[in-house]
Amino acid sequence: MKKAFFLVAISIILTSCGSYVRIGDLTGISNRNLDDSEKYVLLKRDVEAIAKSKNDDALEQAVDNLTKEYEGEFLRNAKIYVKNNGAKVKVIGDVWGIQQTNVNVTTNANAKIELKIGDNVVFKIKKDILEGRIIGLNPNFVIVEYQKRKRKKIIELKYDEVTKTE
């Protein structure tokens, strides 16, 4: 009986030390002051950062790591997880920031195409050819909002996966 109790106690201690504990969801989180005159756009969806700290600022480091990596200003729809009494923090969320209004894309035929927020594009998902509108740009991807089955959806596509329409 004592062995069984001891094994259960040890297994509970080991499992609680090795996993993250979700402490909450936040609508928005930032370490910077936001400017009301700026228009912020979605730069990257569902990204993750993990930070360790001995100085009790692991959450701040995790948010800074995400915003710096994706050149953003703040996070929306953030989920925060804690491990080891706050010494290790994991943050998952959508990075928002100030977007350059246009991007020049050069094709293999050396034709220059300028994409900007608000442009209409077509793209292919599986066998379906869909039409959407650009709502965000980042160095590697274009973020497109489209409608499928009367529901608005958002997708990240590579620049060579979209075609600009007039």
Rank of each mutant, 00 (worst) to 15 (best):
E60R: 07
N33A: 05
R133H: 09
N110K: 14
D128L: 15
G132W: 04
G18N: 14
I155W: 03
G28P: 12
A58W: 01
L42R: 04
A87M: 14
I10M: 12
K158M: 10
K44F: 06
I50H: 03
T101D: 15
S11C: 15
G93D: 00
K126P: 09
G136R: 00
F74D: 09
N108L: 12
I98S: 11
K52R: 13
V142D: 03
N110D: 15
I117R: 03
I134W: 01
A58S: 13
K44A: 14
F74H: 10
I143Q: 00
N85H: 09
F141E: 07
G136K: 00
L137M: 08
E166H: 08
G72W: 01
L59P: 07
K158H: 12
D160A: 03
V41I: 10
N85Y: 12
A4E: 06
V21R: 06
R45L: 02
V21N: 01
Q147D: 12
T107W: 14
A111K: 15
E131L: 03
K116H: 07
N84Q: 11
I13N: 09
N140C: 10
A49T: 07
Y70C: 06
N110Q: 12
D94H: 03
S53Y: 13
A109K: 13
G86W: 09
N31I: 01
F6Y: 10
N33P: 02
W96L: 02
Y81C: 04
I10W: 11
E156Y: 03
T101M: 13
G72E: 06
I117A: 06
I129N: 12
E156L: 01
A62D: 13
Y81K: 08
N138D: 01
K153W: 02
D64R: 02
R149T: 09
L7A: 12
T106K: 12
Q147A: 10
T27D: 09
K39Q: 14
I23M: 00
V47H: 04
E114K: 08
T15K: 12
V103Q: 10
K150I: 08
V91K: 01
N55D: 15
T165E: 06
N77F: 04
D94G: 01
A49P: 05
Y70A: 01
Y40Q: 06
K158C: 04
I92P: 02
Q100I: 11
R45H: 09
N55F: 04
D128W: 09
K39I: 15
I12Q: 08
Q147P: 04
G132S: 00
K2M: 07
V63A: 11
L75I: 04
V21H: 00
K54D: 14
L26I: 15
F6R: 07
S11P: 09
L43M: 10
L43E: 01
K68S: 14
K3T: 07
T106G: 07
Q100M: 11
T165H: 02
T163R: 04
I98Y: 11
D160I: 03
L66I: 00
S16V: 03
D128Y: 08
